[in-house]
Nucleic acid binder design. Structure first.
Lengths: 95, 95
DNA sequence: ACGTTAGGCAAGTGACTACTTGCCTGTCAA
DNA sequence: TTGACAGGCAAGTAGTCACTTGCCTAACGT
């Protein structure tokens, strides 16, 4: 659980999750250019790579090798632990 | 959102939330002794106090002054943002 | 085969964080 | 009023983190 929250505690990593939630199976370079274009992130390729490692160790990102490409996908499973540990009172009714 | 996840990224702070989820309106000393007794936490009073400050800045803990006591309570509201940002697929059906 | 492309490894740096130590401010009971 | 109790403020320290820099490996296209 430490790994999970530590992974989520960084803004760039949360943006990476947003991007992967939109479209699965993205490469490192795709994610780099998308974050730069759409969110003005200036981080280098290595920085993004390390962020993805952190997300992968937390179980939030799963990867698969395809040739020379490494495809990243979002796995929301670990987030369930949060809702299970501290259930949010009212699932927000539509008023 | 940075404050929220940063607050949750520490194990001692998560234990504090657990304790406050059990019983609201606890003082600093109550929380200190409970964490020490039930969870073997060795942190000092000042350490716990700083943790509570972090939780309060994240909106996860709300406080009220009563005489010389400062009562802490758990507010799960900010946690809703997590579920709203990355909805977890299946609310875990009972099989 | 050769250059290019996608990605990985590892050391170094500046900033931040959790925790301690020491002292101070209020509040209550006797 | 005095002492004890609950809590706050602030500086210092050891460890961690995000990011960079430089070089390396492996898979493709021509």
């Amino acid at each position: 659980m430490d790994d999970l929250f530590h992974a989520l505690s960084d803004g760039t990593r949360r943006l990476l999750l947003d991007e992967l939630a939109r479209r699965d199976e993205q490469t490192l370079f795709e994610l780099c250019s998308r974050l730069a274009m759409e969110h003005g992130v200036t981080s280098s390729r290595q920085a993004i790579s390390q962020h993805l490692d952190v997300l992968e160790r937390a179980g939030l990102v799963i990867t698969q090798r395809r040739g020379r490409y490494k495809l990243h996908s979002f796995d929301p499973e670990p987030l369930r632990q949060i809702a299970e540990r501290w259930p949010v009172p009212h699932p927000k009714e539509t008023p």
